[in-house]
Simulated scan of single mutants.
Amino acid sequence: MQTEKNRINVGHEIVIPENPVSHFLFSNTRSAWIWLVIRLYLGYEWLMAGWGKAFGAKRDNWTGENAGAAIQGFIKGALEKAEAGKDVSGWYASFLEDFVLPNAKLFSYLVAYGEVLVGLGLIVGLLTGIAAFFGGFMNAAFLFAGTVSSNPLLFILATWLVLAWKVAGWYGLDRWALPYLGTPWDRKAKA
């Protein structure tokens, strides 16, 4: 006999009870120290990468007088890889050539300041899931362009932080911001 507690079908929804490990990692604040370590590492990496581009030694080719020069060089390298049939898909090469390259200056600012904002968001633990999502999005863009480096590791860590969004910022500003801001789906339910 099936009880309400272990039912899998509830109306039109399939409800599968969460396993204890994922519950601990993604919903229990006792796991927040794990996410704090990952968050601080990832945030530091993003902040340092963006700081040099936005304010430091690399500024001239990213956000300074020659803004867009670094992006143009990066894209030309990716296009060469695509022509050689290595590491870069044809559809992504077309996107880079037809959309990003003509707007290199804009993308230069987006990358530089985006990296800084992702880094700051992760370090202070504010909107951690959103910051990690955009960090992972940039990692994916770099991977599609054929740049491996540390991008696979950073992408995996960002994905984990996105999954742990409820507790990843517990030792940070999310502890107060998330209850105050709420969630869009919660606000609709109360309306």
Score class of each variant (00 low, 15 high):
residue 1 M to L: 12
residue 3 T to C: 07
residue 6 N to M: 12
residue 13 E to S: 13
residue 14 I to L: 12
residue 16 I to C: 12
residue 17 P to G: 14
residue 17 P to H: 12
residue 20 P to Y: 11
residue 21 V to P: 03
residue 22 S to Q: 13
residue 22 S to C: 10
residue 23 H to K: 14
residue 23 H to Y: 15
residue 25 L to V: 02
residue 27 S to K: 12
residue 28 N to A: 08
residue 28 N to F: 04
residue 30 R to T: 11
residue 38 I to A: 11
residue 38 I to Q: 00
residue 41 Y to I: 08
residue 43 G to L: 02
residue 44 Y to S: 13
residue 46 W to A: 01
residue 47 L to E: 06
residue 47 L to Y: 00
residue 49 A to T: 02
residue 53 K to R: 07
residue 57 A to M: 09
residue 57 A to L: 04
residue 65 E to Q: 11
residue 66 N to S: 09
residue 66 N to P: 00
residue 67 A to N: 04
residue 68 G to P: 03
residue 68 G to I: 02
residue 68 G to L: 03
residue 69 A to H: 02
residue 69 A to V: 05
residue 74 F to T: 00
residue 74 F to Y: 10
residue 75 I to H: 04
residue 76 K to V: 05
residue 76 K to W: 06
residue 77 G to H: 10
residue 79 L to G: 02
residue 80 E to M: 10
residue 81 K to D: 06
residue 82 A to E: 08
residue 83 E to T: 09
residue 83 E to M: 12
residue 84 A to C: 09
residue 84 A to Q: 12
residue 84 A to L: 13
residue 85 G to V: 09
residue 86 K to S: 13
residue 87 D to G: 07
residue 87 D to M: 12
residue 89 S to C: 08
residue 89 S to G: 12
residue 94 S to R: 11
residue 96 L to Q: 04
residue 99 F to G: 11
residue 99 F to H: 15
residue 99 F to R: 14
residue 100 V to K: 01
residue 100 V to E: 06
residue 101 L to W: 03
residue 103 N to K: 12
residue 104 A to N: 08
residue 107 F to K: 00
residue 108 S to T: 04
residue 109 Y to W: 12
residue 109 Y to K: 04
residue 112 A to W: 04
residue 112 A to N: 06
residue 113 Y to Q: 03
residue 115 E to K: 02
residue 119 G to V: 01
residue 119 G to D: 06
residue 119 G to P: 04
residue 120 L to K: 08
residue 120 L to N: 03
residue 121 G to H: 01
residue 122 L to V: 02
residue 122 L to C: 03
residue 124 V to H: 01
residue 124 V to D: 02
residue 124 V to K: 05
residue 126 L to S: 08
residue 127 L to E: 01
residue 127 L to A: 14
residue 131 A to N: 03
residue 131 A to P: 01
residue 131 A to W: 02
residue 131 A to E: 05
residue 131 A to R: 04
residue 134 F to Y: 11
residue 134 F to D: 04
residue 136 G to Q: 01
residue 137 F to Y: 11
residue 137 F to P: 03
residue 138 M to P: 00
residue 138 M to N: 13
residue 139 N to F: 05
residue 140 A to E: 06
residue 141 A to S: 13
residue 143 L to D: 01
residue 143 L to K: 06
residue 143 L to V: 11
residue 145 A to R: 08
residue 146 G to M: 03
residue 147 T to Q: 10
residue 150 S to T: 09
residue 150 S to V: 12
residue 151 N to D: 09
residue 151 N to E: 12
residue 152 P to C: 08
residue 152 P to I: 05
residue 152 P to R: 04
residue 155 F to E: 08
residue 156 I to P: 07
residue 156 I to R: 08
residue 157 L to E: 02
residue 158 A to W: 01
residue 160 W to E: 13
residue 162 V to N: 09
residue 163 L to S: 06
residue 165 W to C: 15
residue 165 W to H: 13
residue 166 K to S: 14
residue 167 V to T: 11
residue 169 G to V: 05
residue 169 G to W: 02
residue 172 G to P: 02
residue 174 D to C: 05
residue 175 R to I: 09
residue 176 W to D: 14
residue 176 W to L: 10
residue 178 L to V: 10
residue 181 L to D: 04
residue 185 W to V: 15
residue 185 W to D: 15
residue 185 W to T: 15
residue 186 D to Q: 14
residue 187 R to A: 15
residue 188 K to R: 13
residue 189 A to T: 14
residue 190 K to N: 09
residue 190 K to C: 06
residue 190 K to V: 15
